[in-house]
Amino acid sequence: MKAKRLRLFFLLLVLLISGFLISLLVGPVKTNFSDLWDFLFNNDKIFSLIFIDLRLSRALLAFLVGASLSLSGAILQGYFQNPMAGPFVVGVSSGASFGAVLSIYLGLTIQVIGFSLQTIFAFFSGFAIVSLVYLLSQRKGVFKVETLLLTGIAAGAMASSLTSFLIFLKSESYQQAVFWLLGSFHLSDWNQITAVFPYFILCFFVAQWLAKDMNLLALGDETAQSLGCPVNRVRKIFLTISTFLAASSVSVCGIIGFVGLIVPHWVRILIGPDHRHLFFFSSLTGGIFLLYSDLLARTLLFPIELPIGIITAAVGAPFFIYLLNQRR
């Protein structure tokens, strides 16, 4: 297992570095290695704008959002004891998107470095949706996976329709609707990175701190408690941070579906279910996955940019169906 993890780590590292390099070189303005060289060593001002403010910020944001969504998914899968959960499937993403759009609609978009009202709105509406889904999918204390998934999808659709309604009321721009419902990084800047990065780091450390507890939850709540895990507190913390991760992502780039579902699932197949490693590898893999997805979104129909949600859904939905079939 240890050797397997090490191999995967190096593979991911190579993918990460090449992903960032390609992201820096590809864009509407043609650039090549020598331009990057010029910028790095001769301090070219024009290239500084292109490389740092446009492309690096975008690549970093894609990476951070991918890492946040995947970590959120890894947590939710452990929380619901189910490899088919994820921030999109249980409705957190759609709920958060509604909150973000609502805050814009009400004109409440103050941001003080990394702390924005939009994220807070997104958090509370995302939290409301996931709590609702959780309560509704419990019948007399018995928790059914099918009910969870169906309730999550229904609640998500409900939140999305409200989001669409708000966008329809407020703006004539079709672009905005696409942005919130399918996700995009075309508005990326350093401000947005400061709106995601602190949450990610904080939530990652909390998750890692409680990783052993999450392992115990896999044996059932009562057994976990009898082994010494403070189950109720641990569950509350995990639900809060997974919602925060999804909400901060959604409030800067809209809904990007399926990342949080497929990445942790795939990582678990590769390195096993131990959350002490799963959280880290899910974050890293998710970041890389979105980095490349964004590259695809930018280049596939160049010069037109595709919403990134189209790419992730095209990859993720078939995978989801495959998982559903595997269960039988």
Partner: peptide
């Protein structure tokens, strides 16, 4: 948990540990 260890009647295990 330092005093009592418990073996429940129904085992659940959600992941492939």
């Amino acid at each position: 948990a330092k005093k009592i260890a418990y073996v429940p009647q129904i085992f659940s295990y959600s992941f492939e540990f």
